[in-house]
């Protein structure tokens, strides 16, 4: 590992901080953070949250679907986990995609009965030749139809970005109204101040408008984003979601 002290002479650190303190009209040298800073970091307040997402859960599901479809994702609601593999198979056939699928090595995905289909499956990171991936989600946010995906040993990040087609399984119970609810869930799940290497919000497939401002899907990430929304009310899933 590179020794940071050899790269960044502490002189710049203290010079920059010194200028900041001086120009803010404060005394030189480190000082304890005021109470409002300490409190804000320890108990982050929620700011303005749009009313749009703060609705009953069944309406949140509908809003999530609508918002995701508005940004060129496709969404299919299925009744239970048993229907996931069939839906993956159906979607790939419908879009003329190869029946070869790279799975996130996560029990909620690899534990499904893939033998029911003719799909060829394997699990792990995505490589240059993987055309289709299936991953779980940590949550979905109704406000903008965004998926929340965390990197972990079970969820290699490359699966979200390299394949042409990214299929995400999210459960109805994981859909919330606002981003703020996701951060509360994140803190409950991994502890305050702790984040995975990457916490990704996905709102539709990859796109660009860089050539004459014309919208094109599939710039460098997935060309297609398909969301399988599983109605898991009263269901025990095959693993812990995420």
């Amino acid at each position: 590992m590179t020794d940071p002290s050899s790269l960044s002479p502490s002189s710049s650190r203290s010079a920059v901080l010194g200028r900041i303190r001086k120009n803010l009209g404060r005394a030189a040298g480190p000082q304890d953070a005021p109470a409002e800073v300490v409190t804000r970091l320890a108990n982050p307040p929620r700011n303005v949250m749009p009313a749009r997402g703060q609705i009953p859960h069944d309406q949140q599901l509908n809003l999530f679907v609508k918002m995701a479809e508005d940004v060129n994702a496709s969404v299919r609601r299925v009744e239970n986990s048993d229907a996931i593999v069939g839906e993956v198979s159906r979607y790939l056939a419908e879009h003329n995609q190869p029946a070869v699928v790279r799975l996130a090595p996560d029990a909620t995905i690899t534990g499904l009965d893939w033998n029911k289909t003719t799909l060829e499956t394997s699990s792990g990171v995505a490589g240059p030749l993987d055309m289709v991936s299936v991953t779980p989600a940590f949550a979905g946010v109704a406000e903008t139809g965004s998926l929340m995906l965390r990197s972990s040993p079970d969820q290699p990040y490359t699966l979200n970005m390299l394949p042409d087609t990214h299929i995400v399984v999210v459960r109805a119970s994981q859909i919330v109204g606002t981003y703020e609810e996701v951060w509360s869930l994140q803190r409950q799940s991994q502890g305050r101040g702790t984040m995975p290497r990457t916490f990704l919000w996905v709102t539709g497939p990859s796109r660009t408008g860089d050539i004459e401002q014309t919208l094109q899907l599939g710039a460098h990430g997935p060309r297609r984003l398909h969301i399988i929304l599983v109605d898991d009310t009263g269901e025990t899933s095959v693993g812990q979601p995420d």
Partner: peptide, 30 residues
């Protein structure tokens, strides 16, 4: 409403992670 990807990156890949960078540096420029 939201850009396609909003990516929150914290530190390098964790020991057990299968992908991601080995080192993570932030240049704080004045």
């Amino acid at each position: 409403e939201m850009s396609s990807y909003t990516t929150f990156s914290t530190g390098p890949r964790r020991t057990e992670d299968l992908d991601g960078p080995e080192e993570y540096h932030v240049i704080l420029l004045d």
